[in-house]
Computed example of a mutant assay.
Amino acid sequence: MNELVSIIVPVYNSQDFISRCLESLVRQSYSSIEILVIDDGSTDNSKNIIKKYLEKYKNIFYFYKENGGQASARNLGIDLSKGDYICFVDSDDIISLDFCKLMVEKAIKESADIVSCNIMEEIGDIKIIHSYKTKSNSKREFMIKLNSPCNLLIKKNIFKNSIIKFPIGYIFEDIAIIPALVLLANNVAHVDQPLYVYIRREDSTTGSKVFIKKHLDIIKAIDHLVNLFTQIDKKNEYYDEIEYIVVRRLLISGGMRLAKTKDGKQYLNLIANYMDKFPNWIQNQYVKSNLTKMQKIAGRLIYKRHFYIIYCLNRINSLFKKYI
């Protein structure tokens, strides 16, 4: 088993946590790896810290580019990679020492082009495991379940032989391409272990106008996803999956976050207007089976433009917090 894995690490002003990230990569139990560190125009001490690792490890490669965002850094990493498989690690996260070994083993055993694993989320001293295990290894289940490229091992040929790239210019670019990547995979598989560790840092911009406007990038991401499926001529065949992604990520997750802010009303109206493209969403098979009763109520309230009720409920208590 000597398939080369390219680990792509976008870096932007990561001096406080890049060492921890790189330590988890250089200590992998799987030896056939290359680590591509893409510096997206950092202005702090990140480069000097990375330089120490370059001097010590021959399989680490450093590339500097002008700031263009995480998507552009990931795309450059894909272009520069030489691996049979690609995985993405954010510079403030870490991976299990057996991440590459177990993921490659599963890929070979199941002849899978995409392998996922569970995620361990760390919030201070609190640790939460997010499971991405599906009832079956069907691509339709993977499409609606996965929401990050970071807990995936992806066959490079999927990128090489397709039109798929991370869209540049807005956040939530993951939503825009992961379902399309799954669609193009010959087979998918899952390792039921938390091999990726996501370190959540408090975001001081949450609730601000900047945060609100950025959160509406979900709409741009969804449009990109719909366009990809249209180009591949699979939009109608996977309409239910696309619709559910819109409901879960835009109406429920995005809508509820915006509903907690004082300035969210005008943006909630944009979400409700967008949902008019999916007037029968409440009848979606995945909505019926996967969303809780409270999520469905919240979605209906936003869709019907009852924004003040949602805001008041959030002000009274965190009723919806455990459902989102």
Rank of each mutant, 00 (worst) to 15 (best):
236 N>T: 13
293 K>N: 12
8 I>A: 00
71 A>F: 05
161 N>T: 08
205 T>C: 00
68 G>R: 08
230 T>S: 15
201 R>T: 12
144 I>M: 11
239 Y>M: 15
4 L>V: 08
150 C>T: 11
264 G>F: 13
224 H>C: 14
45 N>L: 08
7 I>R: 00
61 F>W: 07
321 K>D: 13
161 N>F: 09
58 K>P: 09
263 D>I: 02
41 G>R: 07
137 N>L: 11
210 V>W: 11
226 V>H: 12
128 I>A: 03
227 N>Y: 06
313 L>I: 14
144 I>N: 10
170 Y>G: 01
238 Y>T: 08
276 D>E: 15
291 L>R: 00
149 P>T: 15
131 S>F: 01
212 I>V: 15
237 E>Q: 15
54 L>G: 03
294 M>R: 13
15 Q>D: 11
83 G>C: 02
105 E>Y: 10
142 F>I: 05
223 D>M: 04
274 Y>D: 04
212 I>H: 03
239 Y>T: 10
256 M>T: 09
172 F>V: 00
213 K>F: 09
303 Y>R: 04
130 H>G: 06
259 A>T: 04
324 I>V: 14
302 I>E: 11
234 K>H: 14
292 T>A: 03
287 V>Y: 06
176 A>C: 05
237 E>A: 10
8 I>F: 01
173 E>K: 05
6 S>P: 03
30 Y>G: 10
157 N>K: 15
129 I>A: 05
195 L>M: 02
82 K>C: 06
